[in-house]
Design a protein around this nucleic acid. Structure first.
Lengths: 253, 253
DNA sequence: CTACCGGTGTGGTCGGACCACAGGATAGGG
DNA sequence: CCCTATCCTGTGGTCCGACCACACCGGTAG
């Protein structure tokens, strides 16, 4: 058992038992080290892990905001894990896009099935309004687009799926942006995307689950096909080739 | 910019550029510290984070197995994040179960749609055979059950979804096990589960996507209802109440 | 040729030290 | 009496140097 794990278990147990709650603070690193009979560096390693997991937020200084404060931020760790594993090429981008498709169509169906008030739809609505600005660059447009899709998936009321969706979008962002030049006519595409967004939102507002899900699916598929990205039919794998590709023994040594 | 992030960015960049690949090794902690102009403790914090993210595996000693070896293990970090955030009570178990239902039914549909050879189904098959043993305790049975469901979701060929499913099962495990006493008749339930599993596998083998998905959905819903767990209709939220519940100012101070 | 046994490099841990930062206590001036 | 400027204190952030346990690997004695 490595020493820093003592801290992780301690914190998890305290959380589960209610001794630690959101907004609460961890004891100081020195205190924690003494309590657990380990050194401060070990404690620090654990705190770093907790920070990376989105469980604490550290800040220097004094006062209630300083120290290691318990938070609940599942999105950043998910995003980080996703990005790192995409970088290893053992996580095919096609799988990520496929997952996004699944989560989003489900979210749209679920959101449409709920009875949503105008207030809940307002955020998404405003995003669409901002996307009508013709002066937006593809990057700005796509950022708003991502926000809209994330907001939509949040309307289904499942915080886990919403968190995963947010991470997926972040991971995909650079990928899809790099494919914009593949589009035959960006302006025409943007017009199409705008109207599709409006239609999706209308279906959600109107309480048409199946229709909303279909629109979302077509919307996403359509864009990826137009940008000549990920084939959805096959299961193209980036991992397998990378593995065969192992010849180079050019390690730093 | 914190110092340990230098290491994270360096490693991510090296991964993306192909300078680091699975099976490769990070430079030694001392070397890395010198290269980046930071201290060894800072490097160690970063390595700990990478380890927690499932990107490296550290080992002491000498030889090719020692040091920080690049791996691709997305399951453990996902599981850890899930467990920690469940512990904070800001991640409703109902959402987790709902997500599981979504991923599994999709996986079953997808797996049935593919043309799977007998070899690919063999693992799942063997698990079912082992579950026929009448002497299994509920815990042992449920472990095999979880393995079967995970194996099934792996047949869809999406490594991301399979990884997430594995994590979800781990997170759910204790929860569902604690509900076994709610069942009116464990033995009868086990018999039902066994036959449902066989039916699901048959639908997958027979290439009946919709049927497989329906069977999986019914299978999961049925069990949770029998065990009087998570209502699927409403969106019961554990988070909201926990927030209101904030009165206690009994922080350690 | 074989078996033993240090050398060497790896991560794991520790203690102590210093810094930057931010809030709060305190002493000073108005 | 109140307000303000200053110092004190506690926090994380970083670093250094040291020692340990471990596992391979090569030299050496048998």
């Amino acid at each position: 058992m490595k020493n820093y794990e003592l801290v992780l278990h301690r914190v998890e147990a305290d959380l589960a038992a209610g001794r630690l709650r959101i907004g609460g603070r961890l004891p100081g690193e020195r205190t924690l080290a003494e309590q657990l009979g380990i050194s401060r560096p070990s404690v620090r390693e654990a705190v770093r892990v907790l920070e990376a997991m989105g469980v604490v937020r550290t800040a220097t200084g004094s006062g209630p905001e300083a120290g290691a404060v318990i938070v609940a931020e599942p999105v950043s760790p998910l995003t980080a894990v996703l990005r790192l594993h995409l970088a290893t090429n053992h996580l095919p981008m096609g799988d990520v896009v496929q997952t996004r498709l699944l989560l989003e169509s489900w979210s749209a169906r679920e959101a449409a099935a709920r009875e949503l008030g105008a207030g809940e739809l307002k955020v998404a609505e405003e995003l669409l309004d901002r996307m009508d600005d013709a002066g937006l660059s593809p990057e700005e447009f796509h950022l708003l687009d991502a926000e809209f899709h994330v907001a939509l998936s949040g309307l289904a009321g499942n915080v886990l799926i919403a968190a995963v969706m947010t991470s997926l979008r972040s991971a995909i962002h650079g990928y899809v942006l790099a494919a914009v030049p593949n589009l035959p006519d960006w302006e025409a595409t943007a017009v199409g995307l705008r109207s599709e967004h409006r239609a999706i939102l209308a279906a959600v507002r109107g309480g048409e689950p199946e229709h909303a899900a279909e629109l979302v699916t077509a919307h996403i598929r359509g864009f990826y096909q137009a940008a000549q990205l990920t084939p959805f039919g096959g299961t193209q794998r980036g991992a397998a080739e990378a593995e065969d590709d192992d010849r180079a023994d050019d390690e730093v040594k």
